[in-house]
């Protein structure tokens, strides 16, 4: 049978991740016999590679559910999620969404957000380097333009807002002995790499809205008003200084589009 390269490639890819698919055409021994056994070895190696990449990236997720459960979940994901990039470091960016919709993990509602921290960690690690915004520069901004100021998020920064204490759960797994997390409250977790090391920080709860607005490109005034509305105890100065100090931003610029 003669097929075009694209068709033969599609058939090969389809058969690769689904054991119930027929052997792709042209997979034969030197003597021209179809060789299902050898293709199964190849197929298995692909799965081992992909699920192994997930296990390396989602270290705490795997600890939480155990290796058997994780292996099954990773295999289920790999079956329908081929790598979209030749960079395997990107593989699993949408694994948290898969976990959220994976019925056997439904009893662990915090698991997707925990996995999101691990996605953010790798992304922060590989993000572009940038010098964080200097606090001194902020101190020189004149008061009247403050509300219109927009901050440029540091390339590495990711914010995970969760209904669960995922920062504490993640942190509990950075020790050899995992201590139970008993203080159960929603956390906003900032993951970023201002310099050489990735930082994982739990933000003060009343600052979550502010941080989310700023990272989405809102002006200081817009973000502050949203934060005040969400939490009257919000302290603008402390929050802004805190976020800048963590290295969450790398520049700012006045909003040219707004009216004076």
């Amino acid at each position: 049978m003669i097929t075009g390269f694209a068709e033969s490639q599609d058939a090969f890819a389809a058969a690769l991740l689904h054991a119930d698919q027929p052997l792709p055409p042209g997979i034969t021994t030197a003597r021209g016999m179809a060789d299902a056994a050898r293709f199964a070895v190849y197929r298995n190696n692909v799965f081992v590679g992909l699920t192994g990449a997930l296990a390396q990236r989602f270290v705490v997720t795997e600890q939480l559910v155990g290796t058997d459960f994780f292996a099954g979940m990773a295999r289920a994901y790999a079956q329908d999620h081929k790598p979209r990039s030749p960079l395997i470091i990107d593989y699993g960016d949408d694994f948290p969404d898969f976990v959220a919709a994976f019925p056997p993990a439904g009893g662990l509602p915090y698991l997707p957000d925990l996995a999101r921290i691990e996605v953010a960690w790798t992304q922060a690690y590989h993000a572009a380097d940038a010098v964080p915004l200097d606090l001194a520069a902020l101190a020189e901004v004149s008061p009247e333009i403050l509300p219109d100021l927009r901050l440029v998020a540091h390339p590495s920064v990711r914010l995970i807002r969760s209904d669960f204490p995922v920062g504490s759960i993640w942190n509990a797994h950075q020790q050899d002995e995992v201590m139970p997390v008993s203080d159960w409250y929603g956390q906003a977790v900032l993951v970023l790499r201002p310099h050489m090391d990735v930082d994982v920080c739990i933000l003060p709860p009343q600052d979550a809205v502010f941080a989310a607005f700023l990272l989405n490109g809102a002006s200081l005034g817009e973000a502050a008003q949203a934060a005040f509305a969400a939490a009257p105890e919000f302290d603008f100065g402390a929050a802004l200084l805190g976020l800048v100090n963590l290295g969450a931003f790398c520049a700012f610029h006045p909003d040219k589009g707004s009216n004076p």
């Binding site: 470091i89 699993g92 950075q174 963590l246």
Partner: peptide, 30 residues
């Protein structure tokens, strides 16, 4: 002093595929 900084130990988890650990080809029937 702002935010609770959490200490990570897993610096070696630089990202899937960035280590050169030998690839096991053992798997279970999935």
């Amino acid at each position: 002093c702002y935010g609770i900084a959490l200490k990570g130990k897993n610096d070696c988890a630089a990202g899937a595929g960035t280590t050169c650990a030998g690839t096991s080809t053992m798997d279970y029937q999935g």
